Structure formats: C-alpha cells, structure tokens
Computed example of a mutant assay.
Amino acid sequence: MDPVEAVIFDLLAKVAAGKSISPEDVAKALDEKGWRRELGKVRAVAIGLARAGRLVILRHNKPADPDTFKGVWRMRLPAAEGEEN
C-alpha cells in the first residue's frame, strides 16, 4: 500500500463515521516540517481512491467529481448502504 494511502485510511479510521479529514492533515502526518511538498501527492492519491470508489472528495461538505473539483477540499469514507451521502 502506498504510504500516502496508508496515512489517509489511518486518519479516517480515527474520525467518527461521516466525518472528514483535510489534505493538510494527511500531508502533516507524512512530513510535519515539509508538509506543503506532500500536498500534490495527497491530492493525486485521493483522486485515484475517489475514482475507485474507496474515498469521497468533498467540496462545501458535498461529494465532488474527482476529475473536476477545485479549491478547498476534504475527504471521507463512502457512506455505507442506507446512509446519506
């Protein structure tokens, strides 16, 4: 498993169901001092996971298209069957 992917799922496992994490949270967990350099990798991995249905990218707390989103974004696990997105 990719280290970025591992950190994303580790952080998501620590938040309540339906809650999200920021790309900055992931980048800081990877490299506390040079976290800004990690943001591009975090975004690329998150997009891949979202395309595979393993992650939801959020804009304004609503699911966003992983191919077209811009601006401030967050990530959460997909809602289980019967839960609201």
Rank of each mutant, 00 (worst) to 15 (best):
L77C: 04
G18M: 11
E32N: 06
A46F: 04
D31L: 03
L49E: 13
A52F: 04
D67G: 11
V45S: 06
G18Y: 13
W73G: 05
W35D: 00
A80S: 13
K41C: 01
D65Q: 09
D67P: 00
D67Q: 04
G71I: 06
A46Q: 04
L30W: 14
R43D: 13
G71V: 06
D10W: 08
D10P: 00
F69R: 07
L49D: 02
I8G: 01
R43Q: 15
M1F: 12
W73Y: 15
A44Y: 09
A29K: 15
G18E: 12
G53P: 04
A27Q: 08
A79G: 03
V72N: 11
G40C: 11
V42N: 07
S22V: 00
A44S: 14
G82K: 09
V26A: 06
F69S: 07
E38Y: 00
P78Y: 09
V72Q: 14
G40Q: 13
F69Y: 15
V42Q: 06
I21V: 15
S20Y: 11
L49H: 01
K33V: 09
P78I: 09
W73H: 14
D10H: 12
G18F: 12
R36L: 05
K28Y: 05
R54C: 02
D10F: 10
L12I: 10
K41N: 14
K70R: 15
K62V: 12
D2G: 07
K14H: 02
V42P: 06
E81T: 15
A80F: 12
D25I: 00
R74Q: 12
G82T: 11
P66D: 03
G71S: 11
